[in-house]
């Protein structure tokens, strides 16, 4: 399938959804609309709302704040995940002792932590960053842990036969192996950083996309909620696209699925 066809098909799906939404909410069938305006708004209203957001430029500040929180959560969470993942993989005893705590912490729904983080870090960006960190950390941690622990034993034996000692093994074998696992979960990690930020904003803040949506919901402004969601979706797509670009650079040594047949 060519790229153009793909794009056309993708646009067609969006058009179909909007059309159904438009007809359902704006064309009365037997006196009532199938999708009452109060609950579903209409595409025209939502579009007008988005236009207004961008017209008075207020939206940029919210996007900026959400992205800042996302980036901070991602980098801090990844850094911690890498360091502790390495530590666990190289010290099986530590890993064994702490195993139940890691599992328990990972299984905990992070939303319950949000109010505590607000108490600890206030209503500013840091409580959202903290929430994102708890999400990103575990993804990166598990991947790095796995990557270091399950380094291909033949590659490791070969490197050791080449005379490499601890530091060189770390640099040439363990580190790239761990990074490749981490990069393979890059999309998920970045996605979770964003989720952490938005959920944090939603639960209590004064700025950001999550805050916009929450604020609109508070006054039953359905058009505002949808507008916020659509802006959020566009931001997500752009971020994901950037991650793909980065990934292609970082993992150039990897066979792509399509090349493999």
């Amino acid at each position: 399938m060519s790229r153009l066809n793909l794009l056309l098909l993708q646009i067609a799906i969006a058009a179909a959804i909007i059309l159904v939404w438009y007809i359902g909410s704006s064309v009365p069938i037997g006196g009532t609309c199938l999708l009452p305006k109060f609950f579903f708004s209409t595409p025209v209203d939502v579009l007008a709302r988005i236009e207004k957001m961008f017209a008075n430029a207020s939206i940029w500040r919210h996007i900026y704040i959400t992205l800042t929180e996302t980036a901070l959560a991602f980098f801090i969470g990844s850094g911690l995940g890498i360091v502790i993942g390495f530590w666990f993989a190289r010290k099986p005893y530590v890993a064994a002792v702490l195993d139940p705590y890691v599992k328990a912490a990972n299984a905990l729904p992070r939303v319950v932590l949000a109010p505590i983080f607000v108490l600890w870090f206030g209503l500013g960006i840091w409580s959202k960053v903290a929430l994102g960190v708890t999400l990103v950390f575990f993804i990166v941690f598990f991947n790095v842990y796995q990557g270091v622990k399950e380094v291909n034993p033949v590659i490791l034996a070969n490197a050791r036969m080449l005379g490499m000692k601890d530091r060189q093994l770390m640099r040439h074998v363990y580190w790239p192996a761990a990074l490749s696992w981490m990069f393979s979960s890059l999309h998920t990690a970045v996605g979770f950083a964003l989720v952490g930020a938005v959920v944090g904003e939603y639960l209590g803040s004064a700025a950001g996309l999550g805050y916009l949506i929450q604020e609109a919901e508070g006054v039953f402004d359905v058009a505002g909620v949808f507008a916020g969601m659509i802006v959020l979706a566009i931001v997500v797509l752009v971020v994901d696209w950037l991650v793909t670009l980065l990934e292609n650079r970082l993992l150039a040594w990897r066979p792509r699925a399509a090349e493999r047949i």
Binding site: V154, I155, H172
Partner: peptide, 8 residues
């Protein structure tokens, strides 16, 4: 077996 470092 293959023992080259795939990332190099």
């Amino acid at each position: 077996q293959d023992a080259l470092m795939p990332w190099k």
